[in-house]
Simulated assay, not measured.
Amino acid sequence: MKAIVLFAHGARDPRWAAPFERLQKLTQDALPEVAVRLSFLEFMSPALPALVAELAQQGCQQISVVPVFLGQGGHVLRDLPLILDSLRADYPAIQFRHSGAVGEDAGVLMAMRDYCVTQI
């Protein structure tokens, strides 16, 4: 079993998660054979360690963590690697992968630009 975890910051207002939930559904629809889950760094559940525990119980062998952040700030550069190091130690049978912040991708930036230019 493979999984993609969309890793977001989290917020106190539950409405903040709505676009990430839509992204999760869109991604799951595109990859029906992969478990697509949403996880948060803080304020919201599930946290990444709790989600990985659940995926491990389901027999997951590979987890790709995709930070759905606009930039490579401290959470992506410092916090996430520490969490992943701990998870790798706790779950040595699972192969963990992670990408850079989604907002750093050229295609994502172009899609955002296209949206912005339609607002004039």
Results as ranks from 00 to 15, higher is better:
100 G>L: 08
99 S>I: 08
119 Q>R: 15
100 G>S: 11
102 V>T: 13
102 V>W: 15
54 E>D: 14
20 F>V: 02
108 V>L: 13
37 R>G: 10
54 E>V: 07
52 V>N: 06
46 P>Y: 11
114 D>V: 05
43 F>G: 00
27 T>I: 10
62 Q>R: 15
7 F>T: 01
39 S>D: 00
64 S>V: 07
33 E>K: 14
81 P>D: 02
113 R>D: 05
39 S>A: 15
7 F>P: 06
43 F>C: 05
31 L>V: 00
1 M>V: 04
63 I>T: 06
18 A>C: 02
61 Q>P: 01
32 P>L: 07
14 P>I: 10
116 C>D: 00
51 L>M: 13
42 E>A: 09
77 L>V: 12
79 D>L: 05
68 V>K: 05
29 D>N: 13
90 D>A: 15
56 A>Y: 13
68 V>E: 04
42 E>G: 04
38 L>P: 02
87 L>F: 02
40 F>M: 00
91 Y>I: 02
111 A>L: 15
26 L>A: 12
100 G>I: 10
57 Q>D: 11
48 L>W: 08
72 Q>I: 00
85 D>M: 06
100 G>E: 08
105 D>T: 03
2 K>C: 02
31 L>N: 08
16 W>F: 03
49 P>E: 06
84 L>W: 00
99 S>G: 09
113 R>G: 12
65 V>P: 04
41 L>Q: 11
79 D>R: 07
6 L>W: 10
71 G>K: 10
14 P>F: 03
23 L>W: 09
22 R>Q: 13
6 L>Q: 11
96 F>Y: 03
2 K>V: 03
23 L>I: 10
95 Q>M: 08
90 D>I: 03
83 I>N: 00
69 F>R: 04
49 P>F: 03
102 V>F: 15
46 P>S: 11
107 G>N: 13
7 F>W: 15
87 L>I: 05
42 E>N: 12
3 A>T: 04
76 V>I: 14
112 M>K: 13
71 G>W: 09
72 Q>F: 14
85 D>K: 10
5 V>Q: 14
60 C>S: 06
45 S>K: 15
56 A>K: 14
76 V>D: 03
66 V>Y: 12
2 K>F: 04
94 I>C: 07
18 A>V: 13
30 A>T: 04
67 P>T: 06
43 F>Y: 12
113 R>A: 15
15 R>I: 06
63 I>P: 01
8 A>I: 07
110 M>W: 15
71 G>Q: 09
87 L>G: 03
10 G>I: 05
91 Y>Q: 06
24 Q>W: 05
23 L>Y: 05
104 E>D: 12
88 R>I: 00
100 G>T: 07
90 D>E: 11
4 I>D: 10
22 R>A: 09
114 D>F: 11
58 Q>H: 12
38 L>A: 05
30 A>V: 02
51 L>K: 12
111 A>M: 12
39 S>Y: 00
10 G>D: 01
62 Q>Y: 06
36 V>H: 12
33 E>R: 14
3 A>D: 01
85 D>N: 09
6 L>G: 07
74 G>F: 12
15 R>E: 10
18 A>W: 09
69 F>V: 02
87 L>V: 02
33 E>W: 09
55 L>Y: 09
117 V>H: 14
55 L>A: 09
86 S>P: 02
77 L>T: 13
